[in-house]
């Protein structure tokens, strides 16, 4: 475990804490895409099936359980909490899951390291994670009103990916056997999706204003 990886994981964790904090304190999920949250939950469920058959470290196990529990927690709030569910932008959050899920599933069946159920599901989760933010970005563009916490949530989610890239570069040089072309490609795509958002986020931040998208 290197510092980039740890910082990346913490950034990921922090983004989830932010979103829970936003929902819990404001009793509102306005501006949040339930589609994206559902996709992330699917990502965690398909990737962390390995909790049942492989053990890496206590750190990994605990983090996986936190990610699983928190993503189901967010979904529960958005769907069932009496006040929170009324603030959900149902009409604006229209992105269809299958537009992302089906191509990712097909790609995982074709491009993978091993044609086994668990490996294909794991690969599917890698591909899906890369694009799962899209419904959220579309919702942002549409509603244009981005509150601070939602902006920070996406910022830290993007930072997590950028830090993971540094982690991969570090591991590439320090671990000769560590070669994860498929994960790297997906990670680059994922980070690229945030580029536009980062640009506007930093611009608004520099100007000392609230984030505004064009």
């Amino acid at each position: 475990m290197n510092l980039f990886r740890l910082a990346g994981d913490m950034s990921h964790l922090f983004s989830i804490v932010l979103i829970l904090l936003k929902i819990y304190t404001s009793k509102s999920c306005a501006g949040l895409s339930m589609k994206t949250q559902e996709l992330y939950t699917l990502v965690f469920v398909t990737r962390y099936l390995d909790l049942f058959y492989s053990y890496v470290s206590l750190y990994n196990t605990v983090m996986k359980l936190i990610f699983l529990a928190s993503s189901f927690g967010i979904l529960w709030y958005m769907r069932y909490h009496k006040q929170v569910k009324q603030t959900y932008d149902r009409e604006q959050d229209t992105f269809r899951h299958y537009i992302l899920v089906v191509p990712c599933a097909v790609l995982a069946l074709i491009v993978n390291n091993e044609l086994s159920v668990t490996e294909v599901l794991w690969t599917f989760s890698i591909y899906l994670e890369a694009v799962a933010i899209l419904p959220q970005l579309v919702l942002l563009q549409r509603t244009k009103n981005v509150d601070n916490l939602t902006g920070q949530y996406i910022f830290f989610l993007g930072a997590y990916r950028a830090l993971y890239i540094l982690n991969w570069i570090y591991r590439y040089w320090t671990e000769p056997k560590y070669r994860q072309y498929l994960v790297w490609a997906a990670g680059l795509v994922q980070t690229g999706l945030y580029a536009d958002f980062f640009y506007y986020y930093l611009k608004s931040w520099q100007a000392g204003e609230k984030l505004r998208l064009p």
């Binding site: 492989s54 470290s57 390291n113 993971y164 994860q180 498929l182």
Partner: peptide, 10 residues
């Protein structure tokens, strides 16, 4: 086993 080395990430 090497192909699974990425599985130690989250």
């Amino acid at each position: 086993e090497e192909s699974r080395s990425g599985h130690d990430e989250l």
